Simulated scan of single mutants.
Amino acid sequence: MRKLLVFLLIVSLFPVTVFATGTKEAAPAPSAAAAVEEVLTHDELVSRAKAEGKVVVYATTSRIAKAAESFSKLYGIEVESSNLKDFELIEKVAKEAQAKVVGADFVLAQDAGRLVGELMEPGYLYNYVPPTLKDVIPQSMQNPLQAFAINKVFIYNDEGIDKSPYYNIWQFADPKYKSLLQFKNPFQEGVNANFLTMITNEYWSKKIADAYKSYFGKDIVLTTKNAGYEWIKAIYENDLIVGTSDTTIAENVGIKGQNAKRDLPPVGLFVFSKARYATSKNLALKPAMDMEPFAGFYYSLYALMVKSAAHPYAAKLFIEYLFTEEGFAPWGSDCGTYSANPNNPIQEDIDYPFAVWKPLLVEEEGSYCFDHRAEVEEFLNQYIY
């Protein structure tokens, strides 16, 4: 993935005494000499983290609670975790920083565009890569640090079907197949808006134009800025079913008994982790992996330090822990989430390695999303509201 074109603020780590999360406590200004990141061995980091005795994390995933429990059990360090929606987390961190309120020590958050533009560029968050992992995590996932990648893919009802009938994204815009695709409202989840933003860049718009010619047998005639915008317009005008939850979409797609009544089976673009419902809820769900020019998209959960962290060593230790097999377990026990540490296993019976998925998916790039998402959302307004 192309490196995000941002300057990351690297600050020194210093002890800050607070009485409770949310109390006002201005952090001391770092000296010029303190701008160099301190490098500690794992044992030194553990010792200092234990001396702090606590760590506060804001996360956009409920599974942080399980990771916190196992981290506390291993190191004897108290964890105060909060599970927030992506926009809630971003707004909370920004407001606390502006008010000089000491809150989280680190965040585990999604929505790269807003994280980069609203929290990293102003210096509220900064990047930290554990020294023990610099030769393990792919360079493309280190800046900003991606802990996990999560994929959303085209998943269809495969009841009675041996081979996927979906091979080109323009099928969802074909007037013959109205009300075919289901997708969560991009105004309700930032990563969905980021996906639609990414397909308007030069690289993907060219591929989408080529896919149009492959499907319809003629060159695309633009009525918008490029083929990415044209596909967005076309799927909405073809009665895209806009959902409010990936769970609900998965259930609507996967209910058995639908295929005999339709030319093409129900299909949705949602998190691959819902494919587990094929077993747990007796649904028919299978990914369409041979799509032109993409089979979906992926986004990441970023582990980033807070500049005003009261417990910086414990935060660094927890970040390091998330890359271990035990730390990844709350996510790795399911399909659809992939550790940036390639040594951590996946559920091979129901999933594929991220190396298989990545070439099939649109990747999220924070700088592009931050620069262009408002434009795409303005374009979407005419179709959603």
Rank of each mutant, 00 (worst) to 15 (best):
377 E>M: 15
274 K>T: 13
374 A>L: 11
305 M>K: 02
9 L>V: 07
262 R>I: 04
364 E>A: 09
30 P>S: 01
88 E>K: 00
98 Q>W: 10
176 K>R: 14
194 N>T: 10
109 A>K: 06
105 D>W: 03
341 N>K: 11
201 N>Q: 10
19 F>V: 02
248 T>C: 02
48 R>N: 05
296 G>I: 09
9 L>K: 15
213 K>F: 09
249 I>Q: 00
377 E>Y: 05
129 V>N: 02
91 E>H: 10
58 Y>S: 06
45 L>Y: 09
305 M>C: 09
61 T>L: 10
8 L>N: 13
310 A>Y: 04
111 D>E: 12
268 G>Q: 07
286 K>I: 00
284 A>C: 06
74 L>Q: 15
65 A>N: 14
88 E>C: 01
268 G>I: 09
362 V>Y: 00
272 F>D: 10
39 V>H: 13
314 A>D: 09
178 K>H: 06
340 A>H: 04
222 L>Y: 03
150 I>Q: 14
145 L>D: 01
152 K>V: 11
282 N>D: 13
148 F>R: 04
260 A>V: 07
21 T>N: 12
186 P>Q: 01
375 E>K: 11
40 L>Y: 08
140 S>P: 07
288 A>K: 04
1 M>W: 08
304 L>M: 15
118 E>H: 10
255 I>V: 15
347 Q>V: 13
356 V>C: 06
194 N>P: 02
268 G>M: 03
192 N>T: 01
259 N>I: 05
236 Y>M: 03
216 F>M: 05
129 V>F: 01
295 A>W: 07
86 D>F: 09
229 Y>D: 03
238 N>M: 08
265 P>R: 04
299 Y>M: 13
267 V>S: 01
221 V>Q: 12
256 K>E: 10
193 A>L: 15
34 A>P: 04
259 N>Q: 06
147 A>Y: 12
185 N>I: 06
125 L>M: 11
14 F>G: 02
340 A>D: 07
64 I>A: 07
203 Y>R: 05
277 Y>S: 04
344 N>G: 11
19 F>C: 10
40 L>W: 08
238 N>V: 06
281 K>M: 13
262 R>P: 02
376 V>G: 08
323 F>N: 05
275 A>R: 14
215 Y>R: 08
199 I>Y: 00
155 I>F: 08
299 Y>G: 12
315 A>T: 10
122 P>G: 06
216 F>K: 10
102 V>H: 10
196 L>Y: 08
1 M>G: 12
115 L>D: 02
212 Y>W: 03
233 K>T: 01
101 V>M: 11
355 A>L: 10
193 A>E: 06
338 Y>W: 14
198 M>S: 05
216 F>W: 07
203 Y>F: 12
25 E>K: 14
289 M>E: 14
53 G>W: 13
9 L>Q: 14
219 D>W: 05
317 L>F: 02
363 E>G: 15
261 K>R: 11
103 G>D: 12
264 L>M: 11
82 S>Y: 15
169 I>K: 04
24 K>C: 04
100 K>Q: 14
130 P>T: 03
85 K>W: 14
85 K>F: 13
202 E>C: 03
